[in-house]
Design a protein around this nucleic acid. Structure first.
Lengths: 140, 140
DNA sequence: TACTTATTGAGAAAAACTTGCAATAAGGAT
DNA sequence: ATCCTTATTGCAAGTTTTTCTCAATAAGTA
């Protein structure tokens, strides 16, 4: 990961430290095309960082979430999964096959503006999961 | 609850049975102005149905969700809460104070149509939680 | 009243996190 | 290079939440 130095610096500026564990967890999430559960992250990280614990994975994922580096996602299972926070987007989740499709944040802009006007809330662009049937599963 | 008979009939038509446990759980959710966690439902139900178990509460909430009578909601804690499924709506959740505001489903209609056109998904009107800062907490 | 089987209760167990504390090791100061 | 401070981790135990199995119960129908 070429941005490792940049990442480390940005943490240090805020008084935190870069550790092999944090780097490995970021790595795993960067390399994954899909969001991962803490258990899945743990499974992959233990391969490269011997001795790493689940505790550390949980703590690190929360730490990275708090500082905006990863995004926690709730897909309806009741358990959060995580992904690198790059571009803002949302997920459509198929109730049948569980498949997910990403949709751009831009489509939600109008709605957000309306909601903010109506309620006075200042909305953050958090991740949303919308459920339905994907084209394939509709054919059944 | 005057609709108890209607509810019982609608279950029987589908081959299910009405039980004191199911009735009590529906009761609790009807009486509550807010969504409740399984543990909260259990606490209230055990007062009226002696011997009821947490297992039953979990099973019943899932059963009622599957059949469209209650709605599971994910407010970001990672643990679902439940409410009676009356009118469709969504929640704005304040990141600071945790307060919630309901917003009508109608505002989301346009977005849903756009998303369906763009992806081919057939979207169900599931519940959404949008996060942000409520008017009060913005003043700090 | 009897019968079928959906539903529940009980207890154990799995899964998902959390906590406290001592040991480790980043990163800055010397 | 070495020391120091303290952020971070590992370890072990504990808690909470949720699921599972299976026998017992009871709803609804004949």
């Amino acid at each position: 990961m070429s941005c490792a130095n940049h990442l480390a610096d940005s943490l240090r500026e805020r008084g935190f430290r870069m550790t092999p564990q944090r780097l490995a967890i970021m790595h795993v999430l960067y390399a994954s095309p899909k969001h991962l559960s803490p258990a899945q992250v743990f499974d992959q990280v233990r391969g490269t960082v011997p001795g790493v614990t689940e505790t550390t994975v949980y703590r690190t994922l929360e730490f990275l979430s708090e500082h905006g580096l990863v995004r926690p996602i709730h897909l309806g299972s009741g358990h959060p999964v995580y992904e690198i926070r790059e571009h803002d987007h949302h997920h459509l989740v198929c109730r049948d096959c569980g498949g997910t499709v990403e949709v751009e944040n831009s489509l939600f802009k109008t709605l957000y503006v309306q909601l903010e006007a109506a309620t006075g809330f200042q909305l953050a662009g958090n991740h949303l999961s919308l459920f339905g049937l994907c084209p394939d599963c509709q054919r059944e």
